[in-house]
Design a binder for these strands. Structure first.
Lengths: 154, 154
DNA sequence: TTCACTGCAAATGCTTTGCAGCGCC
DNA sequence: GGCGCTGCAAAGCATTTGCAGTGAA
């Protein structure tokens, strides 16, 4: 997870040389993009793949992986890991950068902002002479529901 | 959800119903446990496996997985997922907790402390009603050397 | 026409599981 | 002596990659 954290865009993983990366507009790419638009939740590549199949728009699984990764690299979608360790994606409507508070048990995710962390990360990196900084932050815990459930049952 | 969090606990290796499961004390289990004691950080099963091998204490990979999962099920270790989606474990009683500042290019790592982040994470989780909180924080960038190298010629 | 994008299928790498033998209780 | 624990190797999965054909610019 090295993306999704270009605080204020200098240039994250700068492409090869001068030109910007050109991305051809293919129907597969559009299909994936459209599918993401219809969802508010995070979807795994596998889920999105099946979804497109049922919908008739057939996109090869490998291509689905490639497109999703590509979108993520460009910062067009949000990526994180669900409880099973699968990469899950969601359209990143917010231009702002944020982190997640994940439930270890049910996978529920809450988006949180962390101005303090951003600042700390930037300052810490600078103190050590690091440049082109990005960071990842995830908080794991038991959501209110699961906490209650656990208290009640176990 | 895989383990460590039995959401759908039908698959757990815990057929018994009453109170404590019995866990035999074998040298493999002790070796894994001891290895975890020597670490403050989260380790993936693979890492721990290699670690034990280098150390001479050979434990089969499958066994390492089984032991770690078992410890997690019993709540003896903390489990979460690292950025690559691997399950990582850490002994619960943590004394010295810290994070890393990693060089994206040469891999050099600097250990950093983040009291502010710890506080923020705890408070944020609490605000959303989350309990049993853990978190991961990694900062990526270019270390001074790599920054200079890149500026010089690329 | 050119070259990135696709699909297919084989290849990876992590994790799990079946089975037989071993060792802790 | 019983039964859980180990090891080994094969199985299972999600994800990645090589290669040649296809289509966008």
């Amino acid at each position: 997870m090295a993306h999704g954290a270009n605080a204020d865009g200098t240039k994250l993983s700068a492409p090869p040389s001068a030109g910007g990366r050109e991305q051809r507009v293919t129907k597969q790419r559009l299909a994936v993009s459209a599918a993401l638009d219809e969802l508010d939740d995070f979807v795994s590549t596998q889920e999105l793949y099946r979804m497109l199949q049922n919908q008739g728009t057939s996109v090869s699984l490998a291509t689905a992986y490639r497109i999703l990764q590509s979108l993520a690299d460009d910062g067009l979608v949000d990526v994180l890991r669900n409880g099973e360790g699968e990469a899950v994606y969601r359209r990143c409507a917010v231009t702002g950068h944020h982190h997640h508070l994940l439930c270890r048990n049910c996978g529920k995710a809450v988006e949180v902002e962390a101005p303090a962390v951003e600042t700390w990360a930037a300052r810490t990196a600078a103190e050590h002479g690091y440049t082109e900084v990005a960071h990842t932050v995830e908080i794991y815990g038991l959501c209110p529901d699961c906490t209650a459930r656990k208290a009640a049952g176990a």
